[in-house]
């Protein structure tokens, strides 16, 4: 190696080292920016001296008062509402989405293309529009306000078939030859689904359950419409949102933070364990669109 190339080599190495250090610094800054709000929420949930919003982060007096107070409000009720709705939705929505996407991926029938096109067009209408009528209908059925939870589950689950894209993309990657071999052996189509496809579909099932759970867990709009005017029917999003209105914020701000921590904790832990499946689902879904 001549001296000149060696020098160039050294130059390249140092410039790469510099750019890598710069990127590391940048990533640290990014991580800080992304984590700051969450750190602040946790810190402020332990603040005792002032229950309203303040301009500083570190509590002057630490304590768990906010968490204690939280359980004297309707918060436990909201939490249970949300949990039941999210759990039921996770189960039912997964079944519906899998039925839909499996069918659209595996079968070729006359109405397939028109159905998919129709759902694409339906998706262009703002979903909120249908809430106005659904609210009135659910009210006639007695599924609003204090009984909001079953009504909410119905609303979340019923139209979930339209979100079939990601899991259809997954089913498309399972080779058709598996089905065909089973057909030759005389298996019915239903049997193929239970015995062959489902055992292979663990990642997409987990992804679907996870997203189906997270939707209702953080939903605001639909819950607002359906729990209209009662405290017992609220979910956490509506309940905590109302704590931040002008009349209540000075008393409830730190309680909002404490509630937020309790709401975020379970999903964050769940996410930590199931991250892999979520990432797979999201990346797959975007490419297959």
């Amino acid at each position: 190696m001549s001296e000149a190339t060696a020098k160039r080599h050294m130059g390249l190495k140092t410039s790469r080292a510099i750019s890598n250090t710069a990127i590391h610094v940048l990533l640290i800054v990014i991580s800080i920016i992304w984590l700051i709000p969450f750190v602040c929420i946790v810190l402020q949930s332990f603040r005792v001296e002032n229950t309203g919003p303040v301009g500083y982060v570190m509590p002057k007096v630490w304590g768990t008062d906010n968490y204690v107070k939280l359980f004297q409000t309707d918060f436990p009720r909201w939490y249970t509402n949300t949990f039941i709705a999210a759990l039921a939705t996770a189960v039912l929505q997964t079944i519906i989405v899998l039925c839909m996407s499996y069918t659209l991926s595996r079968f070729r029938f006359k109405m397939r293309q028109p159905l998919m096109r129709f759902m694409l067009i339906l998706g262009m209408f703002p979903g909120m529009l249908s809430m106005i009528i659904l609210y009135r209908v659910l009210k006639d059925l007695g599924l609003t306000q204090a009984n909001a939870v079953p009504g909410l589950i119905l609303v979340y689950v019923a139209s979930s078939g339209m979100g079939y894209y990601v899991s259809k993309g997954f089913f498309d990657t399972i080779p058709m030859s598996l089905d065909e071999a089973a057909r030759v052996d005389g298996a019915t189509r239903a049997k193929i689904l239970y015995k062959i496809i489902l055992p292979l579909s663990k990642p997409i099932v987990i992804y679907t359950v996870l997203t189906a759970f997270m939707g209702p867990w953080g939903d605001y709009v639909f819950a607002r419409y359906i729990a209209f005017g009662t405290s017992a029917g609220k979910n956490v999003a509506v309940g905590l949102y109302d704590w931040l209105n002008k009349d209540q914020i000075s008393n409830c701000y730190t309680m909002f933070c404490a509630g937020g921590v309790l709401v975020a904790l379970p999903v964050t832990i769940l996410f930590l364990f199931l991250q892999k499946y979520y990432v797979e689902g999201v990346t797959g879904g975007a490419v297959k669109g």
Partner: peptide, 17 residues
């Protein structure tokens, strides 16, 4: 992981905060 975890936190909490 740091970035992905922020997806897990419900939007109504992070946005309101």
């Amino acid at each position: 992981t740091i970035l992905v975890l922020t997806i897990a936190i419900p939007q109504f909490i992070s946005l309101l905060y």
